[in-house]
């Protein structure tokens, strides 16, 4: 692209590093930005910078946040006695969208994976246990991703709570593993089906 102005080439290159964006898309985005009002371009640039500079991890739940503690942890209207454990910040977003859950969260930032060398020091399990010691939390909901590593991580946390936390009436639950939305029963594998059956609820 030697006949293209250097700033344009630079933007195309940066955009094409984003996940799911190929060179073609990066070019389209670049020319869209080029044609859009300066204001709009500036807002985009500032939003990107703000994400990097002002987002920190919440020191309680380790979700990404602008303020520490985050808006969920500091909201007195949330049930303070239940923690929902998820792998990634995006999972919090997904659960919040349902509007069903009113408690707190804990973001692990990954799942245990012996085969990929991710051990318990690499994710925030010990930080979770620390939050449970004082006895104010009575339910831990393990909402790790379905799949071997997610199940494994949930198992290790459950085991840890059983062995290390001596809070009376501590309940550890997992999300009922149903069929993924949009999947047909006939295509579901046996494991998913068994879980869906095990996790069934009365209606």
């Amino acid at each position: 692209m030697s006949d293209v102005a250097a700033p344009v080439a630079a933007l195309v290159e940066e955009l094409s590093k984003l996940p799911g964006v190929g060179v073609k898309t990066a070019q389209r985005l670049t020319f869209f930005i080029l044609r859009s009002p300066t204001d709009q371009a500036r807002r985009l640039a500032e939003a990107i910078i703000r994400v990097k500079e002002s987002i920190v991890y919440c020191s309680r739940c380790y979700n990404i946040t602008e303020t520490d503690p985050c808006s969920i942890c500091s909201n007195p209207g949330r049930d303070q006695d239940s923690i929902c454990v998820v792998e990634e910040p995006l999972d919090v977003l997904a659960l919040e969208k349902t509007g069903v859950y009113k408690g707190l969260y804990h973001v692990l930032h990954g799942a245990l994976s012996p085969l990929n060398g991710i051990g318990r020091k690499d994710i925030r399990i010990d930080e979770l246990l620390k939050r449970l010691v004082d006895g104010s939390v009575h339910e831990v909901i393990l909402a790790t991703n379905p799949g071997f590593e997610g199940d494994y991580t949930a198992g290790v946390i459950k085991d840890d709570i059983k062995n290390k936390i001596t809070v009376p009436h501590m309940k550890v639950t997992t999300l009922a593993r149903g069929l993924p939305l949009g999947s047909d029963l006939e295509y579901a594998d046996e494991g998913t089906l068994s879980r869906a059956l095990e996790g069934r609820r009365e209606m």
């Binding site: 085969l115 799949g147 071997f148 590593e149 999947s183 579901a188 594998d189 494991g191 998913t192």
Partner: peptide, 10 residues
């Protein structure tokens, strides 16, 4: 919702 995922678990 991937139809293959459950058949390709570890």
């Amino acid at each position: 919702g991937s139809k293959k995922a459950g058949h390709l678990e570890l």
